[in-house]
Amino acid sequence: MHENDFQILKHAIENMMPANKILGLKIVEITAGSVHIHVPFKEEFIGDFIQGRWHGGILAAIADTAGGVAGATALHSPNDRLNTIDMRIDYLHAAVKADVQAKARIIKQGKTIIKVDVELFQPDNKEPVALARCVYSALRSES
């Protein structure tokens, strides 16, 4: 991908995917093999209403999106597709009522499989709130 392709991908992820629009997801930085994403806190993201903590499923969705965007930077054609085939997430600390960011980077890329590590964190915390390992199938087009 070229720099212009990254901007097209950024626009598509932020503006054309309804789930990402609900999340308010914004791409802070995108480069070959990596992405940095910001998701602003919303009360609707609370899973533990007693302690006011983020729902783990929302965090997993953010991790999968970040991993997918990082993986998509390795695609060669606009007709190539990326599909999640596996994701493992470790929740390390409760995510409090604050924004969440994700940093994802490709750790292994083959002809048909791309593996990505994702770190979810909150800017005021020194420790990540979750770590994910995502695996994607890269469906390459003939053209």
Rank of each mutant, 00 (worst) to 15 (best):
D5R: 14
D5I: 05
F6T: 00
F6M: 07
F6V: 00
F6Q: 03
Q7Y: 09
A12G: 03
I13R: 07
E14S: 06
N15M: 04
N15K: 10
M17G: 07
P18K: 00
P18I: 00
A19S: 11
N20W: 02
K21F: 00
I22T: 13
I22F: 14
I22Y: 12
L23T: 01
L23V: 01
L25G: 06
L25M: 08
K26V: 00
K26P: 01
V28E: 13
G33F: 01
S34K: 12
V35G: 04
H36E: 10
V39L: 05
V39S: 09
P40N: 08
P40G: 06
F41P: 04
E44T: 13
E44M: 13
F45C: 02
F45Y: 11
F45V: 01
I46R: 04
G47L: 08
G47K: 06
G52L: 05
R53T: 10
R53Y: 10
W54M: 08
W54C: 09
H55A: 15
H55N: 14
G56V: 02
G56H: 09
G57K: 00
G57Q: 02
L59N: 02
L59I: 02
A60V: 01
A61K: 02
A61R: 03
A63F: 00
D64R: 00
T65N: 11
G67H: 01
G68I: 05
V69R: 04
V69F: 04
V69S: 06
A70I: 00
G71F: 03
G71S: 14
G71A: 15
G71E: 08
T73V: 10
A74F: 07
A74E: 09
S77R: 10
P78H: 06
P78M: 07
P78T: 03
P78G: 04
N79A: 13
R81T: 09
N83Q: 07
I85V: 15
M87F: 11
M87Y: 06
R88A: 12
I89H: 03
I89N: 04
Y91S: 10
A95E: 05
A95K: 04
A95G: 10
A95W: 05
A98K: 03
D99I: 00
D99S: 07
V100K: 08
V100D: 10
A102V: 02
K103D: 11
K103M: 08
A104Q: 00
A104S: 01
A104N: 01
A104H: 02
R105S: 14
R105Q: 13
I106W: 08
I106E: 11
I106L: 14
I107S: 14
I107Q: 13
I107L: 05
G110W: 01
K111P: 01
T112W: 02
T112D: 15
I113P: 08
I114V: 15
I114N: 08
K115M: 13
D117T: 07
D117F: 00
D117N: 14
E119D: 13
L120A: 11
L120M: 07
L120K: 08
Q122L: 06
K126E: 15
K126S: 14
K126L: 14
P128V: 04
P128D: 09
V129W: 06
A130T: 07
A132C: 07
A132M: 03
C134A: 15
C134M: 09
V135P: 01
V135A: 15
S137G: 12
L139F: 13
L139A: 09
L139E: 10
R140L: 13
R140N: 12
R140A: 15
S141G: 14
S141C: 10
S143T: 05
S143W: 02
S143V: 05
